[in-house]
Design a protein around this nucleic acid. Structure first.
Lengths: 132, 132
DNA sequence: GCATAATAGTTGAGTAGTCAAATATATGTC
DNA sequence: GACATATATTTGACTACTCAACTATTATGC
């Protein structure tokens, strides 16, 4: 089961991110948020982009909100949705973690791939290109 | 994170296997056992082939042993190892589940790939070829 | 041949999610 | 504008693992 193997290997290497106090999935959340045009997304959309369930997102974001990496913002038109916005602290941690993530990604992927992007961004794009 | 997405999608579809009383990972175990030359493997080797930890294998095999899909066999030379062998019941369930797995795999992969093998075998080989 | 290190497997405690049900709000229909 | 239906999020109970520490056994250096 090489898919499982690849994913296990990739996310295990990214465990080094916990030196910034965040896990692999937290980093992915910050990455997605920082990439999104308004810098905020509905929980639903984060769920889709990460392939987690809405429930998983709730549980993942809870500690991130407590430690102040992200914050909650209401939607004026629809009281059901609560946006997830990156805080200043979140952005700072993301920038720090990006260096680590880039180093890890550089160990994982061939050199030509990350001329244009940061290595981490390239890795994500590469994975996106390979499957599904 | 498309790797995670792909894996989530694949293993979620294989949830249909629980109509045979087994999960996706149990099926993978049976598949690996049935493919192995002697029809038996050390727990260690199963761990490596599935990318699980030895501990995960212990926990996975426990119920499979209870329901009689696999059995335990000692190694005469080395008392530390315990082989995992497929039982008759295990082989029967595997053969049944294979039809379901093939049907699922056929929905997931392009047609030319499974001329030679069963669709499930082709899927596994394909995944193996793509990454790692 | 004895001490030290290495290997196979299991166990306790914890983590990262899942699913199904509940809650709150929005939308469409009549 | 009330009622049924749909959508976004949260919660409780559970599952499928992981890691670190342990037990039992085997291999190695001296």
């Amino acid at each position: 089961m090489s898919l499982a193997k690849a994913q296990a290997a990739v996310s295990r290497r990214f465990d080094r991110l916990n030196m910034h106090g965040i896990g692999f999935t937290d980093f992915v959340i910050l990455y997605i948020l920082q990439e999104s045009p308004d810098g905020k997304l509905r929980r639903k959309d984060l769920a889709e982009k990460t392939s987690l369930t809405a429930s998983g997102i709730t549980r993942l974001l809870l500690p991130m909100e407590k430690t102040g990496l992200i914050a909650r913002e209401a939607n004026e038109r629809d009281a059901r949705v609560s946006y997830v916005v990156m805080t200043e602290a979140g952005r700072r941690i993301y920038e720090e973690a990006k260096y680590t993530a880039d180093a890890i990604a550089a160990e994982l992927i061939p050199a030509e791939q990350f001329k244009k992007y940061s290595a981490a961004a390239a890795l994500f794009k590469l994975l996106g290109a390979v499957i599904v």
